[in-house]
């Protein structure tokens, strides 16, 4: 009998608190891709939005696709292709007054326009990213294999922001 130890994508990485932001890894819990066979199915989020689905969030992540974050699949399996994505993504949270300013260095989208309940599928540097607006900042989902690069890039721009603020 094998008992395998689980590790998060940024296992052991301490949060970074600097320049008016806090960067930390977040545990997203269960993440399931929901791709309805009929795109007009009720309850499916409009593009660029997040809808509550019980205790979970249903986050629009692309054409005909949403991620159910933090909850069980429930009835979706009957009307949609359902795929486990819990291990495919690294979750980062970037909170604080400087979050928009930090992301303006990496994300080519006007994130000032995102309110809680909004999301965007775009890029962070050269990496695909799902940006979810949350209270006080953003959650960022990047491919698990690129978690270190995402952290490095965010840490770099946070460092530069800190130096700017010190001027």
């Amino acid at each position: 009998m094998v008992n395998l130890i689980a590790k998060s994508p940024l296992w052991g990485q301490a949060p970074l608190v600097s320049a008016g932001v806090t960067l930390a890894e977040v545990d997203l819990g269960q993440v399931t891709s929901i791709a309805p066979f009929d795109m007009a199915v009720p309850g499916f989020p409009a593009p660029n939005t997040v809808v509550a689905d019980g205790a979970a969030r249903l986050v629009w992540t692309g054409r005909g696709q949403a991620f159910l974050i933090g909850g069980p699949v429930g009835d979706w399996a009957e009307v949609a292709a359902v795929t486990d994505q819990s291990d495919g993504w690294a979750g980062l949270s970037l909170l604080g007054a400087g979050a928009v300013d930090v992301l303006a260095r990496l994300v080519p989208v006007d994130l000032r326009r995102l309110a809680v309940g909004d999301c965007a599928r775009t890029q962070l540097g050269h990496m695909a990213v799902i940006v979810i607006a949350v209270a006080g900042g953003f959650e960022l989902l990047v491919f698990r294999s690129m978690a270190q690069t995402a952290w490095h890039e965010l840490a770099t721009v946070i460092k530069m922001r800190g130096a700017r603020l010190a001027c």
């Binding site: 949609a80 292709a81 795929t83 486990d84 495919g88 993504w89 698990r144």
Partner: peptide, 12 residues
């Protein structure tokens, strides 16, 4: 067509 696909490269 009833077909949906998604990358699971990173999942496994």
């Amino acid at each position: 067509w009833e077909v949906r696909f998604i990358s699971v490269t990173e999942q496994w």
